[in-house]
Amino acid sequence: MKRILTTAILAAGVAIAAGVAQADTSDKKIALSNNYAGNSWRQAMLKSWEKVTGQAVTDKVVAAADPFTTAENQVTEQAAQIQNMILQGYDAIVLNAASPDALNGAVKEACDAGIVVVSFDGIVTEPCAWRIAVDFKQMGKDEVLYLAQKMPQGGNLLEIRGLAGVFVDDAISSGIHEGVKENPQFKIVGSVHGDWAQDVAQKAVAGILPSLPEIHAVVTQGGDGYGAAQAFKAANRPTPLIIMGNRQDELAWWKEQKDAGGYETMSVSIAPGVSTLAFWVAQQILDGKEVPKDLTVPFLRIDQDTLETNLETTEKGGVANTEYSLDDAQKVIAGAK
């Protein structure tokens, strides 16, 4: 018995020396707090979460990984949701937030209760939380830089924004406007909110088109490109260069136009599977790993020569995607250090 105990102590000492965390997360419960599910990106995000976390629960990495989505994109409703998660005894909350700062009070309550909070996509500014995001501002700016290459003469732009009040919408729009400021040959002559949904974008574009001059290009945020194309078609107006957002219907439409007449554009978005990276980051924090508060992942861009490859691997009604493993998360964490 003494020899067994000594061996166990030695093994523990070796593990500590090697930097292996001693925490066990098999009894830990993680919740997903999601503020919105009304478009294909959010549906793909939830599907990726269920796929990856479901396997993690089966493998007893964690005890639970329950997703919750509010009925409306309302801060008060999501704050109440977070408070319920605190009462339900979750060890970590993975959060796609309705606001970067209006949820900070609820997030601080969770932190004060000893709960790990990892925000992604729609991140929060509360210092106690972790944040995972792409450089959304640069993503918006890259759209204009692409247009400057394709259309050096410039032209009129229509901007389709996302969900009003959400950090992502503000950041991408800020990047677009910065790009236009640096490339004054372009002019934004109209702006609408498409809520990252094709049907909403189509109605919004249809409503503003009659008041607009000729549009040479449409800058977008994702989930709105196909709807914009349909609005221009219905109005019998020339189809401009429309930046796409990695949705399958957008990529399929782009492929049709490319085959028919060589239509050229690009497509860019954050991968919906970033929710799975946030899950693994939360798991690693619970497992005692040291994780920087801010993690950045690259956005997923599709160009003319990679269109067909990405379309083939994107399911109908879905979004071009990347899902993350524990190993991927560990590499992202190590890179941030």
Results as ranks from 00 to 15, higher is better:
residue 1 M to A: 14
residue 3 R to A: 14
residue 9 I to V: 15
residue 9 I to K: 11
residue 10 L to V: 11
residue 16 I to L: 13
residue 29 K to D: 05
residue 33 S to A: 14
residue 35 N to G: 13
residue 35 N to L: 12
residue 38 G to N: 15
residue 39 N to S: 11
residue 44 A to W: 00
residue 46 L to E: 10
residue 46 L to C: 03
residue 54 G to H: 04
residue 55 Q to T: 11
residue 57 V to L: 01
residue 64 A to R: 13
residue 66 D to K: 15
residue 67 P to A: 12
residue 68 F to M: 13
residue 70 T to N: 12
residue 72 E to F: 05
residue 72 E to W: 00
residue 73 N to E: 11
residue 74 Q to C: 00
residue 75 V to W: 07
residue 77 E to Y: 02
residue 80 A to W: 02
residue 82 I to C: 09
residue 88 Q to L: 13
residue 95 L to Q: 07
residue 96 N to I: 06
residue 97 A to F: 11
residue 101 D to P: 04
residue 112 D to M: 06
residue 114 G to L: 07
residue 114 G to Y: 12
residue 116 V to K: 06
residue 119 S to R: 05
residue 129 A to W: 11
residue 129 A to L: 05
residue 133 A to F: 13
residue 139 M to T: 05
residue 139 M to H: 03
residue 140 G to V: 08
residue 140 G to D: 05
residue 142 D to V: 12
residue 144 V to W: 04
residue 146 Y to I: 08
residue 146 Y to N: 07
residue 147 L to W: 13
residue 149 Q to N: 12
residue 150 K to R: 11
residue 150 K to L: 09
residue 153 Q to W: 02
residue 156 N to E: 04
residue 161 R to V: 05
residue 163 L to N: 05
residue 163 L to M: 09
residue 165 G to N: 05
residue 177 H to I: 12
residue 183 N to S: 12
residue 188 I to R: 10
residue 195 D to R: 10
residue 198 Q to K: 08
residue 199 D to R: 05
residue 207 G to F: 01
residue 210 P to T: 08
residue 210 P to F: 09
residue 213 P to E: 02
residue 215 I to C: 03
residue 218 V to E: 01
residue 223 G to Y: 00
residue 226 Y to L: 09
residue 228 A to I: 00
residue 231 A to C: 02
residue 236 N to C: 04
residue 237 R to V: 08
residue 239 T to V: 10
residue 240 P to M: 10
residue 244 M to T: 14
residue 246 N to G: 06
residue 249 D to G: 03
residue 257 Q to Y: 03
residue 263 Y to G: 03
residue 270 I to V: 10
residue 274 V to I: 15
residue 275 S to T: 10
residue 275 S to N: 12
residue 276 T to A: 07
residue 285 I to P: 09
residue 291 V to E: 13
residue 295 L to M: 07
residue 297 V to W: 11
residue 299 F to E: 06
residue 304 Q to V: 10
residue 306 T to Q: 07
residue 309 T to C: 00
residue 311 L to D: 03
residue 335 G to P: 00
residue 337 K to G: 09
residue 337 K to Y: 06
